[in-house]
Nucleic acid binder design. Structure first.
Length: 496
RNA sequence: GGCGCUAUCGUCUAAGGGUUAGGACAAGGCCCUCUCAAGGCUUAAAUACGGGUUCGAAUCCCGUUAGCGCUACCA
């Protein structure tokens, strides 16, 4: 059997979209499931929309999220396509180049071949003429599209022109789609589409067909929106006498309103999720479950990349589009945060806390990390939970401390005695702090809850914190006692 | 308008002719508990509509409706 080869062909027009991540994921899962190769190809044929730095950003994002391709543009190729590229993201491969702007000569050659075979022709219709045609068609309420005016005109190569594909008339065409099943077009509606633009660059249709053939792509997995142009691609393969790959059109990723996920639904760039504190593992796992499921009664939904690879199959890809749920992604991110080893979580947290302006003490952070782990959905959720550890002066939430029968005098007493109790401990740790403070609560004659609330706010300033005794241990014996003493003094003024 | 795709709880989905239509997120309740979480238990929640085929349909067929995509010298 022929080697399985898939390709992901994004346009470097901006940051990688989360929907693109799903497509890239499926390309890799499918290829690797069958021991094949996943290829990254840069589709930069639209010279208008190129964004500087986008190729590097694309590969950087892909690799951050854990998607690594087997073949793709080398450093030299990227540098050629993108000024200002500094290197370090090249992939390389034998069927180079993997950047379409570097394959233009090949597309022109294929285009010439198509003209020679009578499947394509040059067209020098002006934009105005085309516009006029369209208006007239609209007025007559006809289907809009190119009339075929230049079909028999033999436009010479010397004048500015495009090359159009000659759509055969009265042809039915059938696509055996690996996801959708058999899709039939009784007649082809497309009207002699442009293959080669007047700037000499190919349109998607020509470039993708030529490349998929040249790069020996066996399976084309792509978004649903390409389904309507699939007949064109099939016809192109046929006209060239090439064997067409297997097509699999993937269901769309939707926003809550059922339309294709876009900016107005919230974050859509992978970069944005990264900056918001999502874990790459969670993103991949979550995206795999939009439009695909393990099925067969499987009720587990947390899978590593390896597990996904082992289970993936096109038969289990859904037909219907799926809504992207930020809620469920967040939950899943929490699941992945909880799976991390404490040291690993600490390492991922540190830069975020530093960026938030905290003077992080590694030892304190390490002590508290296991206790905030089940309290995080996103990495930055840690900031409000741990900042009391790294601030010189804390603001205390007095209103939360002094309520429901707790007055300043009682609170002052608790803090003063709490400070003494903590300071007196030998072999200070969370357990000994707890023992001392529980004893204090008992002796005070008050319920433990309110007493601990006073101490919590005295030590951390906040009413919501990691577990009290672990927080006190993380802060340290001297500092905790000091904060209690300080609170007692502040409350003393209040009492007077 | 034309062509095409799609249709199970609010959302992601399972069930490939026979199940009390299952699980997960979100929501509600209970338990645990020093706050907040996490965790455990639990409740509510769906086969778009109408026709067939069949002993039997969420599942196969047809129609309707609705949504989406494409209809560019964008991909």
């Amino acid at each position: 059997m022929q080697e399985v080869r898939t390709r992901f062909a994004p346009s470097p027009t901006g940051w990688l979209h989360i929907g693109g991540v799903r497509t890239a994921l499926f390309e890799i899962l499918f290829a690797h499931r069958h021991g094949g190769k996943a290829i990254l190809r840069i589709d930069d044929t639209d010279r208008q929309r190129l964004a500087p730095g986008a190729i590097q950003a694309l590969i950087e994002d892909l690799s951050w999220v854990g998607l690594h391709f087997d073949e793709g543009p080398s450093d030299e190729e990227i540098a050629l396509a993108d000024e200002g590229y500094k290197g370090g993201f090249g992939i390389g491969g034998p069927l180079k180049p993997y950047v379409q702007s570097q394959r233009v000569a090949r597309y022109q050659e294929v285009s010439e071949e198509l003209i020679r075979l009578g499947h394509a022709y040059r067209c020098d219709c002006t934009a105005e003429r085309l516009e006029k045609e369209r208006q007239e068609q609209t007025a007559r309420r006809e289907a809009v599209g190119y009339s075929g005016y230049c079909r028999g005109r033999n436009v010479p190569a010397s004048v500015p022109h495009v090359v159009r594909f000659r759509i055969p008339e009265d042809r039915a065409i059938v696509l055996a789609d690996a996801v959708k099943g058999e899709v039939r077009w009784e007649q082809i509606i497309l009207r002699d589409p442009v293959l080669l633009k007047s700037d000499g660059f190919p349109t998607y249709h020509l470039a993708t067909v030529a490349d998929d053939h040249d790069m020996k792509i066996s399976h084309v997995l792509r978004a649903d929106e390409w389904l309507s142009t699939a007949p064109l691609h099939l016809l192109l393969f046929e006209a060239l006498g090439w064997e067409a790959p297997v097509f699999a059109h993937l269901p769309p990723v939707l926003g809550t309103d059922g339309k294709k996920l876009s900016k107005r639904h919230g974050a859509t760039f992978l970069r944005t999720f990264r900056e918001a504190g999502y874990l790459p593992e969670a993103i991949l796992n979550f995206m795999a479950l939009i439009g695909w499921s393990p099925g067969e009664g499987e009720q587990e939904e947390i899978f590593t990349l390896e597990e996904l690879t082992r289970r993936f199959s096109l038969e289990r890809v859904n037909n219907a589009g799926g809504v992207f749920s930020y809620e469920k992604l967040k939950w899943m991110n929490g699941v992945y945060i909880r799976k991390l080893a404490a040291e690993e979580l600490e390492a991922r947290l540190r830069p975020i806390l530093v960026a938030a302006g905290l003077r992080v003490d590694e030892e304190k952070l390490m002590r508290i990390t296991p206790h905030i782990q089940q309290r995080l959905e996103l990495l930055p959720d840690a900031i409000p939970l741990v900042e009391f550890l790294f601030k010189e002066a804390i603001e205390r939430d007095w209103s939360a401390m002094l309520k429901k029968g707790m007055d300043a005098a009682k609170a002052r007493e608790i803090c003063a005695r709490g400070a003494e109790a903590l300071a007196a401990i030998e072999g200070f740790d969370a357990a000994s702090a707890e023992a001392a403070l529980r004893k204090l609560a008992e002796e005070s004659g008050l319920a433990a809850g309110p007493v601990f609330t006073v101490i919590r706010i005295a030590v951390t300033g906040q009413k919501v914190t990691p577990p009290l005794f672990e927080s006190i241990y993380a802060l340290g014996q001297a500092e905790s006692a000091q904060r209690l003493r300080e609170t007692a003094e502040l409350l003393a003024k209040e009492v007077r």
